[in-house]
């Protein structure tokens, strides 16, 4: 019933679709997810490269394909290419092909380019989430590993295995980013669930040590207050603290509102505040220079 294939396809392996008969040649393994392995492939006779995911379980993969197809119908840029089966060494396995997103994972990007990029990348990510929400889906398993960032900060969500409809249970989640883990609410998918994960992710990217400290609490007393305490204490988090606190507490009505609030924050930070007060040292030295000038003038006139 379920065919599982956890064997690795070495570079050069030809994957031939059983139904559509398209042929893909494996270039290398890109990564392993919760329910499948993703390879970089190219299509025989075409220059374009794609990402191809071989599922460990036919049913789970199909569930993901269903969501990708539904998204494809509604989104202008097509992410999903096709789904098919192929005969591998260990039996029949299902796979699907998607657009290859070049870039690095979010945490690697921030580490390499600096924390000041978070404002922009976060904005683009919130835009993605908000458009996904408006189509009637919750992403679920939001974490830095599932966000790819291109060199100039445009983002793409990968791994749609955790996507569910609002009001349904979240299919896949990861401890740190899970609202239930922090005793901060249910595991029922809603827009606030994704925003909560987003907020934890920001804390991690800006001040991972503090987050680690907060999560080391005993599970039964671990709570969202621990995260709020981190927000208050950490200086790196200060510029975002107000927004993050609101997201952690489920204070945004929806992701559109959260996006707008983030936008305001980003541009407020980007444009430096006007200095309405002259620094004291400048006032003092100005004063002193006038005294000197007066003294010099006095001495000059006296001679």
């Amino acid at each position: 019933m379920t065919t599982s294939s956890e064997t690795v396809c070495p570079p050069g392996t030809v994957i031939t679709g059983k139904w559509q008969k398209n042929q893909y040649i494996v270039e290398r393994l890109l990564g392993r997810g919760a329910n499948g392995s993703v390879y970089l492939v190219y299509r025989r006779g075409h220059p374009d490269r794609y990402a191809l995911k071989v599922g460990y379980d036919t049913l789970e993969l199909q569930s993901e394909v269903n969501i990708l197809r539904a998204l494809n119908r509604q989104l202008p840029s097509s992410y999903f290419i096709e789904a098919d089966d192929y005969k591998s060494v260990s039996g029949e396995a299902a796979f699907y092909v998607m657009r290859y997103v070049e870039g690095v994972q979010l945490h690697q990007f921030i580490r390499a380019r600096g924390r000041e990029w978070l404002g922009l990348v976060g904005l683009k990510l919130l835009e993605r989430l908000s458009s996904l929400h408006s189509l009637g889906y919750i992403f679920g398993d939001l974490k830095p590993e599932n966000v790819m960032v291109s060199p100039y900060g445009s983002v793409e969500l990968i791994d749609y295995g955790g996507v569910s409809a609002p009001g349904r249970s979240v299919k896949q989640f990861t401890e740190w980013y899970d609202r239930g883990y922090w005793n901060a609410g249910s595991r029922t998918g809603d827009e606030a669930y994704d925003l909560f994960s987003f907020a934890v992710m920001c804390i991690q990217l800006l001040d991972e040590e503090s987050l680690r400290g907060a999560s080391a609490q005993l599970p039964q007393i671990r709570s969202v207050q621990d995260l709020e305490a981190v927000l208050r204490k950490s200086s790196q988090l200060k510029p975002y603290a107000a927004w993050l606190g609101r997201a952690l507490g489920g204070g945004f009505a929806n992701s559109r509102e959260a996006l707008n609030a983030w936008k305001k924050g980003v541009y407020a930070r980007a444009v430096p505040r006007k200095r309405n007060k002259t620094p004291r040292w400048l006032q003092r030295s100005f004063f002193l220079s006038i005294v000197f000038a007066g003294a010099a003038l006095y001495l000059f006139l006296k001679t």
Binding site: M1, T2, T3, W19, T58, L59, Q62, S63, V65, N66, R69, A83, D84, D85, E92, A94
Partner: peptide
């Protein structure tokens, strides 16, 4: 079984299972 079903049929079955 599931893999013997053509893709469109399979999509419907999995929707029901989900």
């Amino acid at each position: 079984s599931l893999t013997e079903l053509p893709p469109e049929k399979r999509a419907q079955v999995v929707e029901v299972v989900d």
